[in-house]
Design a protein around this nucleic acid. Structure first.
Lengths: 278, 278
DNA sequence: GTTTTTCATGAATCCTCGG
DNA sequence: TCCGAGGATTCATGAAAAA
């Protein structure tokens, strides 16, 4: 059982790193040792609160995110949930560790305020600007073309934050990396799909986004934790950059997809590059 | 006195529109008629964590301290202040009116959560991306290259929101205007300066930013209110686009600068275009 | 085989008015 | 307050189909 294996993995979590643990993060996080994680990336439910069906101009129906895991009764219940998982994350974070959260305008303002209330200290807010967002079909608002990332440390006086400034600067053509990041949506070959072509996960994030986060804010050998692991994009980014990783995920079908994906990635890393094919 | 003149100007505020009223917005807003304003733009104080300039709800200065308890106190007092002015703004807003707030990561997450708690409903969040931001001199974070704007209506079921979709689409080369806006910082001839070259206002916003906001979310003849009027950029944008305007501003030196600026603008509008000089 | 056209789709808080 | 009619409304990408 996952719970026992987690409890055995101390210190440094040797028994559970590089694994996908199935379960609710509110149950699993308390079993991890305090101060054991270098970097946390979290993509929590957004609480979209969709009211009606939305039609495209050609009268087809938009496939909206209406999964059970995104349903909350009220702002208050969403806030309670947010406080709970952020508090649990803060406990397992090293004093020098940092945490990222991604969200949209539906939830990110609540998350940001709660982060501050819990004692986290913002390092940056970063905007992921989408080159190919979904349009506003009714022509009644601006195209919602970005999502927001919050990057923070554990406390205002936390020291020893590892920010790979020069690597980011080099990636940005020799100029300081800015808070506006440009990536397309996750699609094409990168998007995990069932045999019938449907999305495995409704909100799979682009690997390039996670790759930049991992390389900017962790060092080789660090432990990267994702409490809402989904189909494992965070772990793939960690693996490819020589970081250890740990995913928590509640939905069995996402756990299966993530484990298969990570197995493929691990095999791929052990094959000479020229044999992988281009 | 400002207070008496405000009280006289009902309904439709004929006595006070197109004026800069000197005074605290928490005192002036309650004197305005309920449901009389079409559009509000607010650029509230950001100085949440400058350690020496913490504000109470009445905007008096709190003695700064460093420990966690006082940090919480500063958040709480900023929240009280934010709730107070947003509640007062909501009262004067027409049912079909909308409100914009601009902020940075220091304050915008608290503002956003409070907006939701007060019943406002987000239409968009928009990021102002700066072509020439201040670099991060220490090389320890990403260049903070954007600020955030929240656009919301008075309530989830509010109807009749005027969004000039086609004008925005035309401005964006025939494609829907997106939530990422690109403007340089306010500088050059646009930046108001004292005789000795120092800035009149530390955070004067680019006129192009306010111009887009006014044209996107109000109609000619509408009344535009800015409760933190500063040196009057919102009013200039309103004036140039045929909207009525009303500024509230507490600092006498900003009031003077704004009145002089608006007088120049008004004179400019009454001179044939070719005589203005290009 | 190559190029062009068609079509599906992505974290979406997406209308207004009259009866 | 609810319901139905009327009317205005989409961009980038990639895969599939057609030329």
């Amino acid at each position: 059982m996952a719970a026992r294996r987690v409890a055995e993995g101390q210190p440094g979590l040797p028994g559970v790193v590089d694994q996908v643990l199935q379960g609710d993060c509110l149950e699993l996080l308390p079993q991890l040792p305090e101060g054991s994680v270098d970097l946390i990336f979290a993509d929590p439910p957004y609480n979209l609160q969709l009211q009606h069906e939305l039609l495209r101009p050609n009268r087809s129906v938009v496939d909206a995110v209406d999964d059970d895991w995104d349903q909350f009764e009220s702002f208050a219940s969403y806030d309670d949930f947010t406080r709970a998982w952020l508090t649990a994350c803060r406990r397992v974070l090293k004093p020098s560790g940092t945490l990222w959260v991604i969200g949209s305008y539906h939830n990110i303002y609540r998350v940001g305020a709660i982060l501050q209330d819990l004692g986290f200290w913002f390092l940056n807010d970063v905007v992921w600007i989408k080159s190919n967002p979904m349009p506003n079909f009714r022509g009644v608002r601006f195209t919602n073309a970005h999502e927001t990332l919050l990057w923070c440390k554990r406390a205002p006086d936390a020291k020893g934050i590892g920010f790979n400034y020069h690597e980011m600067k080099a990636e940005n053509g020799g100029k300081q990396m800015r808070s506006d990041w440009y990536f397309p949506l996750c699609g094409g070959a990168e998007r995990l799909r069932e045999a019938d072509g449907t999305k495995v996960h409704p909100t799979q994030k682009p690997l390039a986004l996670l790759d930049r986060i991992v390389r900017a804010s962790s060092q080789p050998g660090d432990l990267v934790l994702d409490p809402f692991g989904g189909v494992g994009t965070t772990a793939v980014a960690a693996l490819r950059n020589g970081r250890r990783w740990l995913l928590l995920e509640r939905e069995p079908r996402y756990v299966v997809a993530a484990r298969e994906r990570l197995a493929r990635e691990t095999a791929r890393l052990h094959v000479p590059l020229q044999a992988v094919g281009g």
